[in-house]
Write a protein that binds this DNA or RNA. Structure first.
Lengths: 187, 187
DNA sequence: ATTTTTCTTGAACGGTCATTCAAAAAAGGT
DNA sequence: ACCTTTTTTGAATGACCGTTCAAGAAAAAT
């Protein structure tokens, strides 16, 4: 009674959840086995190693994340209003689960000293996000100011991820974010 | 030829370095043994457990950090100018070592899902820093605006810790920070 | 229907993890 | 000088780590 070939994306989503929550080092392959229902052999055949699985989880997370960001911005009246909405949903999101921050950012921080492929991969994906912000800001602001504003946006997003663990008051975070990003069209 | 009673503070400084660099999970007690030169038994007699050692390392780090912050601010012409200097030294510091961020912030993020004593300890110390900012800002700004500005400061400090791994250009970070904290008396 | 290939199984591998402990050495009290 | 307490030593503990693999089941090819 063997199971049919498993659903790769479902498995990756479980892995994302586990790795995001506990980080790379504190997540064991035995926890992966439990969380996915797969046996070790199957995992290793499909993903080669813990690093392989982790990298593919990062990949899927960043793809989904970038897609969501693009959709949110492009469905808004203007790019900058879309960014406001995106930030607002980040603030609201800190209440719901206990592993906010961005999976990419958390990984980048955890593995910074290791300086391996996983770290540089997470880093490069974060750079992509900043580039994307630059691209969208170009539509609403002058060319001279967008670079530092994109950097400022990234600082706030990183900060929010960390601060969200600290502070359980969305209202407080909202005020802090609007203080620093006062050039955005908040309503 | 046995060594005399070891220097507790020196040992803690080595532990801070190790834990800060690699995080809680990725630092093994065997690495602590190597880094400190002590034998397992001595460490366990003095600190009880890995958690005990980690907590005392956090404690020492936060004491030193708060002291440095206070000194920097109080030696400046005004508190807000002291904060500028502090931020500038953070920005410069990201170049020097590969484990910037704040040890407290990194720990808080890593152990957020565990929700144990170590996490809440790191969290409470971070809250202390925000309170300290409030206290100093009161001397330079109106009561109405200081709370969100202190929050904004924390967001930037957290953001800097993460962004420092990403970005190797202090000039870029400086611009981003000044964009978000434009109310500070930058020169 | 039979062979070949692909996937699943779960026990087992050597290594490293945090921690312990009896024995030896040093320090402190008298 | 002697005895008591404290500290150091380093090998050993069982548990868990990431990973492997021979055996068996399912799917695909013939």
């Amino acid at each position: 009674m063997t199971k049919a070939k498993f659903n790769r994306e479902e498995v990756l989503d479980r892995a994302i959840e586990l790795f995001w929550q506990h980080g790379y080092s504190a997540s064991s392959m035995q926890q992966v086995v439990k969380a996915t229902g797969l046996k070790p052999g199957s995992i290793y055949l499909a993903f080669e190693s813990k690093d392989g699985l982790f990298k593919e989880a990062l990949e899927r997370y960043s793809q989904k994340g970038l897609k969501k960001l693009k959709e949110e911005i492009e469905s808004a009246p203007t790019p900058s209003k879309g960014i406001c909405r995106y930030l607002e949903s980040m603030i609201k999101g800190t209440l719901k689960c206990d592993y906010t921050s961005c999976f990419l950012a958390k990984t980048s921080l955890e593995l910074a000293a290791e300086n391996n492929e996983l770290h540089s991969f997470a880093s490069s994906k974060l750079d992509e996000i900043e580039d994307l912000f630059c691209h969208y800001l170009e539509q609403d602001y002058g060319k001279k100011e967008i670079k530092e504003r994109a950097t400022s946006l990234m600082l706030h997003i990183f900060g929010l991820g960390l601060y969200g663990y600290q502070c359980s008051s969305p209202a407080k975070m909202r005020k802090g974010v609007r203080e620093g990003l006062s050039w955005l069209p908040w309503d």
